[in-house]
Nucleic acid binder design. Structure first.
Length: 150
DNA sequence: GCCAACGTTGGC
DNA sequence: GCCAACGTTGGC
């Protein structure tokens, strides 16, 4: 899951251990579908810092709710307001996540150096999805990287 | 700030 | 249903 650290960084989550954070504001159908259809409570999440000086994976979070309607879609004052979303059939959902651990920053540059990750969805050309699935082999490789020096 | 990539919108 | 125009993402 990508987040702009100016908005929500791994440190923000770490400052409130045990507290859940709603992952609101997803407004892309593919990303929504991953949340709605593929995520399970208890799933771990790679927390990625995007649109910043040093983009990369900064830690782990955990999915801790089922998908439920994102309230910001109905809030006219929100930048995520979607006037076309029907109240009786909300278009956008979110899940709650909570902090698991901070890791060393595994930068995008580093991630691109590993042939083992060449097929990773996050790294594909033109990928803009804020939520992408991670293959088990990629997951194992990255968790291992977290414990090694850069 | 630039720009490639891609999604969405809306006229036809 | 096609596709041009436009908007957004996000690395650089």
């Amino acid at each position: 899951m990508k987040s702009e650290p100016d908005e929500v960084s791994i440190d923000h989550l770490a400052a409130r251990p045990g507290q859940t954070v709603g992952w609101f504001g997803v407004r892309n159908y593919q990303a929504r579908n991953f949340m709605r259809d593929a995520m399970q409570i208890g799933d771990l999440v790679l927390f990625y810092h995007s649109s910043c000086a040093e983009p990369g994976i900064a830690g782990l979070a955990e999915v801790c709710s089922a998908p439920y309607p994102d309230p910001t879609q109905f809030d006219p004052a929100s930048p995520y307001h979607d006037p076309k979303s029907p109240a009786d059939a909300p278009r956008w959902v979110q899940v709650d996540v909570r902090f698991v651990q901070k890791s060393r920053l595994i930068t995008l540059t580093e991630l691109r150096q590993y042939p083992e990750l060449a097929a990773m969805r996050l790294l594909q050309r033109g990928n803009r999805l804020s939520i992408t699935p991670v293959e088990p082999t990629e997951w194992a490789f990255i968790v291992d990287l977290m414990e090694r020096a850069a």
